[in-house]
Design a protein around this nucleic acid. Structure first.
Lengths: 192, 192
DNA sequence: GGTGCGGTTCACGCGGTCTTGAACTATATG
DNA sequence: CATATAGTTCAAGACCGCGTGAACCGCACC
């Protein structure tokens, strides 16, 4: 039992097992597909589902609507939206009459990837480098470490640097590469 | 049985209770660092640790030695080595006198990444594409789906293709990019 | 103040993944 | 053949991250 059911009279039954709120079957498939791919990339599946639905429907949703459509919990939606907003893939907007926030899909998903990859790097790859440096320091200090061992350790560190550089390069080129298609996406969402 | 063995005074160092078999402190740090980064890339932490130790020590190890040094279980080592061998980052060799297999680190780690990424793509990205196509089919069939919704769904699919292409490109360039440094790695291991 | 509603936070439980350890197979050795 | 040792498989369990749902906060309106 996910959350509380909507009191709207439209509630057309439908209640069997793998049902999604009000989503049309094709929407369920599409949002799930995005969810899967996004999960594969190391994010949360539901982050992908939320973004996908917002994008497909093309109009801003409230948290409550998302909760209902995707059958998520109130708390879950809150956290998902916070992450998505922080990464710039979802825009929070106050709609004129309604008192609730609404959220709209931003079209350059690549922000999500690049932002998070960078974020991870910051706290993580940095740490790796520090660890390798520390290991080197200790090894030298110990004194009895064979020279080749030391040199391999050094090479390992430079390998790490190279991989990191390659990764950054990827992000940069990916941004450009996907830019084209995303330009197309954007022209659509301008309409509103 | 996380180590009721080997109480060498040296390993007091490491922050908490995580003592490592015979590893020198610097080795423990280095292998762990590699383990972390490899885990971050979606593999098992211990796969990274095994490779790292083999590489750092520069000589082939038996499964039993790895089991002891890294404090892993027999079964675990067996599975880890099988994966690593399958990916071509570790080479199995029968040593002349000993009756047991020995394993040596191969130097182009990128094989691991590229192999697995490709493997994942095969079964996975393909699936995503199929799902999006299916969603499109259903949406058209339903008939009452707004035109813009359909067009956004299409764009989503082309986005997926672009990302996939970018990914392949990354693998290819990464292979080259890291090739240089890995050539250096290799020149070292030749020497024995 | 009180009530209702949107939104946030967080301890807990569930589900999935990795590791373990024991049973088992394979292979060498006397 | 018997025995020992290397290596594999797999069920059970440890472990960890995610989503849930309830408590909580803040604000608007009566």
């Amino acid at each position: 039992m996910k959350g509380y059911l909507w009191t709207s009279g439209l509630e057309a039954g439908r209640g069997e097992g793998s049902s999604y709120g009000h989503l049309a079957p094709w929407e369920a498939i599409a949002t799930d597909a995005v969810g899967n791919v996004i999960e594969f990339w190391g994010f949360k599946r539901n982050q992908g589902r939320v973004w996908a639905l917002l994008y497909l429907r093309g109009e801003p949703f409230t948290a409550g609507e998302l909760e209902h459509e995707l059958e998520l919990s109130k708390g879950g939606v809150s956290m998902l939206l916070r992450d998505l907003e922080r990464w710039g893939v979802v825009r929070r907007m106050r709609s004129p009459h309604d008192s609730a926030w609404r959220y709209a899909a931003e079209t350059d998903l690549i922000r999500m990837v690049s932002h998070v990859v960078e974020e991870r790097e910051a706290g993580f790859i940095e740490r790796i480098r520090a660890d390798l440096a520390e290991a080197y320091r200790l090894a030298v200090e110990a004194g009895n470490v064979p020279r080749e061992h030391l040199s391999r350790l050094e090479k390992m560190a430079t390998l790490a640097e190279h991989v990191e550089r390659a990764l950054r390069l990827f992000i940069k080129t990916a941004r450009l590469d996907v830019g084209g298609i995303l330009g197309a996406l954007r022209e659509d969402s301008n309409r509103q």
